[in-house]
Simulated assay, not measured.
Amino acid sequence: MSGAFRIDRVVTSGVFELDGGTWDVDNNVWLVGDDDEVVVVDAAHDEKAITAAVGDRNVVGIVCTHGHNDHVTVAPQLGEHLHSPVLLHPADRELWELTHPGRRFWRAEDGERIAVAGTALEFIHTPGHSPGSICLHLPEAGALFTGDTLFAGGPGATGRSFSDFPTIISSIRDRLLVLPAGTRVHTGHGDGTSVGDESPHLDEWIARGH
């Protein structure tokens, strides 16, 4: 890992649309890399804000944690302008097509890795919030990028189409809470948390059933 390695956050604002509803949202866009190259995690709302944060760095990939429109808003055009592939788990193709019909993406499969700045992010398939939700684990930095799968205070929403509460609980329990307690969780919206802060509350989430 490069000595100049860093994780930057860009917050963008826009609208989440699904099932006929619309919600104003602020999204976290994560830039993971060093002074020379970077991976963009989620391409939300504002292409100019993301490209400004990237600067003149080479973008190795634009990884979408899932296919909801607020996480893929500007993904195709950002990929074209930055000459970078857009990656998404294929189980979210139907959601992707709602926003970008006919546009291509590369497959982000469970267990695959994307190399950047002398290290690599591993894709962890965590369905529940959506069928193709993934998290990105960076062990060397003790970092986990969870999209809308895990937040400070519990799992992502499962009350809309393509989502399932027991599935997201299984994903969090079996794939995320087994990581080291000190792993820092960088979420798709709002403030971060850690695996250790969230793991004691699993039974509470199950009892709430939300």
Rank of each mutant, 00 (worst) to 15 (best):
R103F: 13
L138A: 09
I124E: 00
G159P: 12
I172P: 01
R93T: 06
A141D: 10
D24N: 13
S133Y: 14
H45A: 00
S133Q: 15
W23M: 11
D19M: 07
T146D: 04
V60G: 00
A43S: 12
A157R: 13
W96K: 03
S161Q: 12
L18W: 06
W106T: 03
V59G: 03
W96T: 00
D70C: 12
P76S: 03
R107G: 02
C135H: 07
W30H: 10
V25T: 09
D70W: 13
L202E: 08
G192W: 03
T149N: 08
R184S: 04
R160L: 13
W30L: 01
R175V: 08
W23N: 07
H81L: 13
G132V: 07
D24G: 14
H81E: 13
A43F: 01
H89E: 14
E122V: 10
D26F: 10
G102E: 01
I134C: 08
P127N: 09
V60H: 01
H125C: 06
D110K: 08
V32R: 03
S199R: 15
I50P: 07
G61A: 15
R9G: 01
G209V: 03
E112C: 14
A52K: 14
A143P: 11
S199P: 06
P85D: 14
F151D: 03
L150H: 01
D164E: 13
V86R: 06
S199H: 10
A108F: 00
H186A: 02
L98W: 08
D46F: 04
S194Y: 04
G188N: 00
P85T: 15
A75L: 04
L78M: 04
D148F: 07
L121Y: 01
L98T: 05
C64N: 12
V116W: 02
E112H: 15
F123E: 05
R57G: 03
D174P: 03
R103Y: 15
H71Y: 03
V185C: 07
P155W: 12
V41I: 15
G196Q: 10
A4V: 00
E112Q: 15
R113C: 15
D70R: 08
G111I: 04
A143S: 15
V116L: 06
L98M: 12
D191C: 08
A4E: 11
L82S: 02
R184K: 11
R175N: 11
H66L: 15
E109Y: 13
H100Y: 07
S84V: 02
G153D: 11
R104S: 14
V178A: 06
E204H: 15
V38Y: 05
A143W: 05
D191N: 11
V185Q: 06
S171W: 03
R9P: 01
G128T: 01
L95S: 03
G182F: 15
G190R: 05
F5D: 09
H186G: 07
D56C: 06
I206C: 05
H66P: 04
V32N: 02
L177F: 09
